[in-house]
Deep mutational scan, measured.
Amino acid sequence: MQRVNMIMAESPGLITICLLGYLLSAECTVFLDHENANKILNRPKRYNSGKLEEFVQGNLERECMEEKCSFEEAREVFENTERTTEFWKQYVDGDQCESNPCLNGGSCKDDINSYECWCPFGFEGKNCELDVTCNIKNGRCEQFCKNSADNKVVCSCTEGYRLAENQKSCEPAVPFPCGRVSVSQTSKLTRAETVFPDVDYVNSTEAETILDNITQSTQSFNDFTRVVGGEDAKPGQFPWQVVLNGKVDAFCGGSIVNEKWIVTAAHCVETGVKITVVAGEHNIEETEHTEQKRNVIRIIPHHNYNAAINKYNHDIALLELDEPLVLNSYVTPICIADKEYTNIFLKFGSGYVSGWGRVFHKGRSALVLQYLRVPLVDRATCLRSTKFTIYNNMFCAGFHEGGRDSCQGDSGGPHVTEVEGTSFLTGIISWGEECAMKGKYGIYTKVSRYVNWIKEKTKLT
């Protein structure tokens, strides 16, 4: 034993070699072989497995989906700052455009905790909710729209109204504003409101030439003092309507412009014939205590009207009353817009006519005020429907199939267009061939041609 100890002390290297040989010859039971080890760690190889990531292109799944990435790591994937920024906006807080917040056709661009709407022409605001041009839906104005110097929408209202708090709607500024039905039992019968379409306001006024200088022999019209197929109006439903009495009662109609003036057809009036105007009328054979009678003290036909040349060209006249009318729910003026808007309103496509005229061709006159909704007829169809001249200051309205029309005794009465609950004068009943005849239409004086003249002559002093 002493000898062994001496050998170990003198030859430590020998001992180490012996131990190493023993270990190498022993069977290893701690580690699995290569094949079995792979069965336990069965993990798919990654895209760049075996390579240094710093030297390969980034992978979106590896960089940002398996674990949260930084902007720089995302930049490695896209290799483009702009594309990385677009991805980053949604990656950080989701897609803010998912709810489609942009209105009126706006395009949404996502941002971090926010979004941006790219608005089409005519709109602005956070969600493109603000109209900035009158060309689109009248700028959301209830009545009139004008573009300011910086191309912003400025709404306005006709006389007797003021802008509401929203700067879009119009509200009454006087007790009985024009064009409004205020009798409670008839307010439910107000005709369907007309909503502004998209309009090209630059070209809204037709490029028409008034044929002022045409000389033409007097034409022989049949029954051209021209509501057939209409309905009984309720008291106060058309408070701007008046009836004219002269040699015979209810020979023509008219509309209240203001307390002192009536507008009617020029062919209705004769110099030297006494005319009485009755406002607030409903049943011409009954006294309903809503009527107001006034005498006409002055007749002003349009300066281009000449019955000797043509009885229905420039067929418009103004009547001055001896005493002002007292405005109330049964006696209310009709609204008159400017030339541009009167023309736009007419193009809405349908209007209402009213009167006490004959209820059928050569038949009896109506006792109760009649009204009828009539569609506008395109000019080409209008011209083809008659052998008589249709001037540019006239328009056609009615039904091709016949059966409904204005008729004798309705002449001078109103053709009105309702705009968001307020009625505007767009025409004056003038003439036609018979009444409600198939293929024939009622012919009306186009008020847009005469609004400046009306307003100039009827100013209240």
Rank of each mutant, 00 (worst) to 15 (best):
V92L: 12
I214T: 13
E73H: 14
S169P: 01
G421F: 04
L23P: 03
G230K: 12
F388V: 14
G246S: 11
I309R: 09
H361W: 08
T84L: 05
F55K: 15
K440A: 09
E286D: 10
V202S: 13
A37L: 02
C155S: 00
G246K: 05
D315H: 01
K51M: 07
M437T: 14
K339Y: 12
V30F: 15
Q143G: 00
S107H: 11
F360D: 15
I390R: 08
N393H: 11
K89T: 13
D111Q: 15
V296M: 02
L321G: 00
L19W: 07
I309E: 12
L244Q: 00
D249G: 10
K168P: 02
T215H: 07
A149I: 12
R75E: 15
G442F: 05
L244N: 02
V359Y: 12
E129W: 00
G160F: 02
E79A: 15
N245W: 06
D131Y: 12
K39G: 13
N147K: 08
F424C: 01
Y22V: 06
P375H: 14
Q96F: 05
D200N: 09
D249Y: 04
A366C: 05
P44R: 04
V153I: 09
G50Q: 15
S49I: 09
N295R: 12
N283R: 10
Q143W: 00
P172C: 03
H282V: 10
K274T: 08
N138M: 04
E165H: 11
S184H: 11
F78W: 07
Y305F: 08
F424K: 00
T389F: 13
H282K: 06
M6H: 08
L321E: 00
V248Y: 11
N151Q: 09
Y91Q: 15
N283F: 10
Q219A: 12
V296N: 01
V183S: 11
H303D: 09
V377F: 02
F395N: 01
A308F: 09
P235S: 07
N295H: 12
C18T: 07
L14R: 04
K311T: 06
K260E: 03
Q219E: 09
R180E: 02
G427H: 01
P197T: 12
C252Y: 01
W240Q: 00
W453P: 00
T461A: 14
K446C: 04
R384I: 07
I309P: 04
A317N: 00
V30R: 15
C170H: 00
T264N: 00
D410P: 13
E340N: 11
A9T: 10
R404Y: 15
D322Y: 02
K347P: 00
F87P: 15
V326G: 05
C69S: 04
Y352M: 05
A337C: 03
A366M: 09
E288F: 05
K68W: 05
K438C: 07
I299L: 05
S350I: 07
N393Q: 05
V377R: 05
D338L: 03
K126L: 14
K188V: 08
F31K: 14
G94D: 09
Y312H: 10
Q237N: 08
N313G: 06
Q143Y: 02
G442L: 07
E67D: 07
T264S: 05
H302N: 04
T332K: 08
P172V: 07
I40P: 15
S423A: 11
N138H: 03
E116G: 05
L460N: 08
I275D: 02
I309N: 13
K260G: 03
V277M: 03
D410Q: 14
E66L: 04
W118G: 05
E208L: 11
G254Q: 00
K234Q: 07
A380Y: 14
K362V: 05
S169Y: 06
T276Y: 05
V359I: 13
A397L: 01
V277E: 00
T417L: 01
L319S: 01
E259M: 05
Q143T: 02
G355R: 14
F388E: 11
V359M: 15
F176P: 00
C108L: 01
T287S: 13
H361M: 14
E61R: 15
H400T: 14
L52H: 15
N295A: 10
S184C: 05
V269K: 02
C141V: 00
D405F: 13
V331H: 01
G427R: 00
W356T: 05
L189M: 07
E420L: 12
S430M: 12
S148I: 06
V30M: 13
Q408I: 14
F144I: 03
G106Y: 01
R449H: 15
D110M: 05
G94T: 12
F55V: 15
L24H: 03
T422P: 01
Q90A: 11
Q90H: 14
K347M: 11
V174A: 09
E401G: 11
A233D: 05
R140M: 07
A26G: 12
N135A: 12
I7H: 14
C102W: 00
A266Q: 02
A266W: 01
N100C: 04
L130S: 11
K234E: 12
N59V: 04
H314Q: 03
S365Y: 12
E259S: 09
T133V: 05
G432L: 04
R43N: 14
T209I: 11
V202G: 11
K455M: 07
I214K: 12
I454P: 00
I429W: 10
P333C: 02
P239Q: 01
S406F: 15
S350E: 14
S430N: 10
N5E: 07
C170R: 01
N295E: 11
C407A: 04
F360I: 15
I390V: 15
R140P: 04
T458R: 02
F87M: 15
N245Q: 09
T16C: 09
K168S: 04
W240F: 03
S411T: 13
E259T: 06
F388I: 14
N59T: 13
H361P: 15
V183K: 09
T271K: 09
C18F: 14
I300N: 03
T133K: 07
Y115M: 02
D93I: 05
K146D: 12
E433C: 08
I297A: 08
Y441D: 00
Y441G: 02
K188E: 08
T445I: 06
D198A: 14
L244M: 07
Q241H: 12
M394S: 06
E288Q: 07
Q216I: 06
P175V: 08
F348M: 15
V153W: 04
C69N: 04
E281G: 13
T84C: 04
G246D: 06
E116C: 04
E401P: 14
V278A: 05
L23R: 02
N222V: 08
L319M: 15
Y444R: 00
P177I: 01
C128R: 01
R364H: 10
G351Q: 03
T276P: 01
L24K: 03
K387D: 13
L425N: 02
E456F: 09
C170G: 01
E270V: 13
I299G: 04
V202I: 12
D223N: 10
A149K: 11
S49V: 12
E76I: 15
L103Q: 14
E193C: 05
R226S: 07
I297F: 04
E231I: 12
S156E: 10
D232Y: 12
N343E: 15
T381S: 05
F78L: 14
I214P: 13
G280I: 01
I428H: 03
Y201K: 13
H289C: 09
R294K: 03
D212T: 13
E286N: 10
K51W: 03
D223R: 12
C335W: 00
K146H: 06
P12S: 13
G351A: 10
C119M: 00
P333S: 05
C119H: 00
T422L: 05
E456K: 14
H282S: 09
N48G: 06
V183F: 11
E323S: 13
T290A: 05
I443Q: 03
K39R: 11
S156F: 13
D93Y: 05
Y201A: 12
G349C: 02
H267M: 03
E35P: 11
E67R: 04
G363R: 06
V228N: 06
V228C: 10
V451L: 04
D232Q: 09
C28S: 13
N283W: 08
E288W: 05
G403I: 12
N245Y: 12
C252F: 01
L319T: 01
T386R: 09
I390M: 06
E285L: 13
N127F: 05
F78T: 03
V195E: 13
E208W: 08
E10W: 14
L346Y: 05
N203W: 08
R62F: 03
D110K: 06
Y341P: 03
L19N: 02
I7M: 13
N310M: 05
V451C: 08
L321K: 00
C252T: 01
G363P: 11
K51D: 09
L318S: 00
C178H: 01
T186I: 13
L244H: 02
F221T: 08
S70T: 09
C119D: 00
